[in-house]
């Protein structure tokens, strides 16, 4: 079966909205139970089912402790669920793989590697030749706004810069899905806004599938096509909200847009409810 025209240079990728939405990740009745120190079971996730479409920017929003990270780790294959299963393109997820690239709140850079060394790490591991890996990595470093910092060590960078490196490092091995766990959570408000803008610019270029964990309502609305609202004790999906706002999105336009404001207000109200009452049993 050969659908792609042989002369690929003439192949124009259709715009996302016209492309038939195909499922890339399927989370099927996933539950996660942790044994607490008091030997009591703690249900972190209860019966979560969710499908994520290819090329979609999906945010998981919810109060702290509702299992957002755990859900992301399950998709990443870093943690296996107590019951249920997650699949990627129909294949059961049994462990981490380069098709799913994580970006953590803690950056988790390799401190003994320079910025360039960090970004090159993935491609080199995938067997890309050093010269090519370096060229690609330099382009990526420039794209995340760190040109000139190639030979800096992580300890010499600010939090925002570290997270830019972490993003470039993950983008460098071309994962099909980006898994971002409160990536901007540790940053100050100004840096956070700048990184949101830059992430959106980068994302709008190649529209990778993104699963983005956050507990900030405006961050979720600003970035996402879809917001998955979770509640805690036990962690459940409360509602899935489609964010029907035009792209490319520009912050200054969006903040004045009544539709954006309504999403934020509605979701914030929902968040308050969820935070107060927890999950209905």
């Amino acid at each position: 079966m050969k659908v792609v025209p042989s002369r690929s240079s003439e192949w124009v990728r259709p715009v996302t909205s016209q492309r038939p939405a195909s499922t890339i990740i399927e989370i099927d009745r996933v539950s996660q139970v942790f044994q607490t120190s008091a030997r009591k079971d703690h249900v972190a996730l209860s019966d979560i089912s969710l499908t994520i479409e290819e090329g979609a920017f999906v945010s998981i929003l919810g109060p702290s402790g509702c299992g957002k990270s755990t859900l992301l780790y399950i998709v990443g294959g870093f943690v296996s669920p107590t019951s249920g299963a997650a699949t990627m393109k129909g294949q059961a997820i049994t462990g981490p793989g380069p098709d799913r690239g994580p970006v953590f709140q803690e950056f988790a850079l390799f401190p003994w590697k320079t910025v360039l060394g960090n970004v090159m790490y993935g491609p080199r591991q995938q067997g890309v030749r050093a010269i090519e890996a370096e060229a690609q990595s330099r382009t990526l470093i420039e794209m995340v706004g760190l040109k000139g910092y190639e030979n800096f060590y992580p300890k010499e960078l600010s939090g925002g810069m570290k997270q830019r490196v972490a993003l470039a490092r993950t983008l460098a091995y071309h994962p099909e899905v980006l898994l971002m766990d409160e990536p901007f959570g540790a940053l100050d408000a100004h840096t956070r806004t700048r990184l949101q803008n830059d992430l959106l610019n980068i994302w709008e270029r190649d529209r990778k599938t993104v699963l983005f964990v956050t507990h900030s309502v405006d961050e979720a609305v600003f970035l996402s096509d879809k917001v998955v609202m979770m509640s805690k004790s036990p962690g459940r999906i409360r509602q899935v909200i489609d964010i029907d706002l035009p792209r490319p999105r520009r912050r200054n336009e969006l903040l004045l847009d009544p539709r954006y404001q309504k999403y934020v207000v509605d979701i914030e109200r929902m968040f308050d409810e969820v935070d107060e009452t927890g999950s209905p049993s």
């Binding site: 870093f78 380069p98 993935g122 995938q126």
Partner: peptide, 13 residues
């Protein structure tokens, strides 16, 4: 840091 090891695992180490 566990996340550092996870990052490596995702790269295929």
């Amino acid at each position: 840091e566990e996340k550092m090891l996870w990052s490596g695992a995702a790269m295929g180490l």
